[in-house]
Amino acid sequence: MLAYIQFADRLSAWFGKAFAWLILVMAIGVGYEVVVRYGFNAPTSWAFDLSYITYGTLFMMGGAYTLSRGGHVRGDFIYRLWKPRTQAKVELVLYFLFFFPGVLALIISGWKYAERSWRYMEVSVNSPAGIPIFQFKTVIVAAGILLFIQGVAQVFRAILCIRSGEWLIADEDIEETEVQLAKQKGVGPGNFAAGTAREDGRGLKEEYKDELER
């Protein structure tokens, strides 16, 4: 189980990070459009399609990565008060009720949707450039499969937690988070990140629970 969890964490992170670089493609592509539109009076016919294709691919492929790092929003103000074992038991049940059905639907219906698009090699209607979008529709299936693999890992995590009473946290790959900062104060500004904001804030809240209850 442990090996599988590590495998899934790494797989999700690999895909999430690889596709994350689309943000640079997106910024440069859309930036280029602005330059040629104003600089050379020659707008491109592909920048608009590029922008949503990169955006959509990026966030879909990042879904499993975000899940593995506990980054999806949860309303956890009661959840946080429970012992890890209780949390794990509840989560184990909820994964089967509220995770796998949706993700399976995503894979199966997404397949149907993408397969048809491949059949006629669908291109975007937004411009005469004929930017292909069948590969973009396939992202739905790919994202679903990644989520499924990661979901199984999360179930294993819950089982391990029920046994040991402690959650197994994914290796943190972005070192510079607010929490890290809190731990190693004195790091100069500009060296850290805000994105893990939420989960870190939550971690912090955990640390100061005693004080909160006072």
């Binding site: 999430g16 966030f59 990565y65 975000t66 929003v73 510079e176 994105g195 893990t196």
Partner: peptide, 12 residues
């Protein structure tokens, strides 16, 4: 960092 944080927050 910026790239990876972007994907996580966007996905969220």
């Amino acid at each position: 960092e910026s790239v990876y944080l972007t994907v996580r927050t966007t996905a969220m």
